[in-house]
Simulated assay, not measured.
Amino acid sequence: MFRPLLVTALLVAASSAAIAEDKDDTVATPVLRAQVTVESDIVRVGDVIENAGTAAQIAIYRSPDLGTTGSLPTAQVINVLQAHQVIGVDTKGIKSVSVTRLARILDGKDIESQVAHALEHRSGLGDAANLNLTFDRDVQDVRLDASNTGALQPVSVRYEARSGRFDVSFEIANDNTGSRTKLRFTGVAIEMLEAAVLTRNVDRGDVLKASDVVIERRPKAEVGSDAATRSHTVGMQMRKGLRAGQPLKIADLGKPDLVQRDDNVTLIYEAAGLYLTVRGKAVDGGTEGDTVTVLNLQSKRTVAGTVIGRGQVAISVPMPRTASADTTSSVAEPDAPVSIARRNNAQTNSNAE
């Protein structure tokens, strides 16, 4: 709401002196403005009137709130002007005068972002984008005088890692005065990480499907620094059982076993010129590259081999020393092979008796 201001006798005298100019001088007619913008908290004659002359600096109204617009009926404005000896105003048929108070508006979301960047990488905190801030007071848009054109500069940043409490102060430079506008924000900061979270209870040995996990943001203190992402969980095997809703860690997962305990497997004996396969039963499980123990179902002996595929275990076959260069090398036969495939044909004796 606009309220007329009381002016001193000195200001009134100055206005009267302006009217009492020599009649021979040409004086421009004062003209009413329909749209007015002001930066200060005072509306003056020169703001609402063109050609106000020496009366321009006379204060007549208080400005509306920062960043808002108010309306004044023309008749009311004319009455106030006449009270200050400003007469003969051309209203140009204007019904009301609109007055807007200029302001610099700091968006609440931008303020939160500035606080997060001020706290970034302090006392063990991570990137600003991963910080979840809870303010002691709701952060709303801040309206400042338009003269506050400086950047929002952090001048004091404190963070307590144990409690998560923060206290951040900013300053903004002012064009009109040497003083700076100060803003202070306090609250709690928690670093969040994206983690793969189980949608169902899982047991040790379960292989995860896409429907078994969702991505959620969880506190770093809850998931640790080894939180598993979705791309590293689907198709992996659980190393222990977990409940639905628990975040997954890299240590909870492993490559899926290609051979599982008590599975029927194929033992593969391979050497130069020889490829043998034997039926076996896994004594323990393992993934690709693991060494596992397998029972040879033909010889009933256990052998150690390397997992090379699903249900496949490779057995190393030692090569015997050759008696001489003219003697063809022979390979020790494995226990009771199911099938034998020789890759090189035996040499044919070419000496006819």
Rank of each mutant, 00 (worst) to 15 (best):
V155P: 03
L258R: 05
A332G: 14
I315A: 00
D22Q: 10
A244H: 03
T100N: 11
P256V: 15
A118M: 05
V27K: 13
P154Q: 01
V115Q: 01
V142Q: 07
V223Y: 04
L295W: 01
V157L: 01
M236Y: 11
E222P: 02
S63K: 06
R218P: 00
E333H: 05
F185E: 07
R122E: 08
P256H: 06
D90E: 14
V38E: 04
D226I: 09
L131M: 03
R137W: 02
I111W: 01
T26I: 15
R158F: 09
E353T: 11
P219V: 08
Y61F: 14
E270L: 08
Q298E: 12
L295M: 13
P73K: 10
L32Y: 07
P73S: 06
A161E: 15
T291F: 11
V331C: 10
K300V: 08
E171C: 00
L6M: 11
A14S: 14
V142M: 04
L295G: 06
E194Y: 12
V80G: 02
K240D: 14
K182P: 02
R204V: 09
A18L: 09
P73R: 10
R101T: 10
A128N: 02
D138P: 14
A75C: 04
E191R: 04
A336E: 13
E216P: 03
R343S: 12
A146H: 12
N132D: 13
D90H: 08
V202P: 03
L106M: 08
A189P: 07
G53V: 08
D127P: 12
L81V: 03
R101W: 08
D47T: 06
E39L: 11
V207E: 06
R162G: 13
T233S: 13
H84I: 12
E216Y: 03
L253M: 05
N351F: 15
L267G: 04
S316C: 00
K23P: 10
G224C: 06
T74H: 05
V234G: 04
R33S: 08
A55V: 04
S96E: 15
T68F: 08
A151K: 14
R343N: 07
N176A: 09
Q347H: 10
R33M: 10
P30A: 02
T181G: 10
V7H: 05
K109P: 03
L81W: 01
G286R: 03
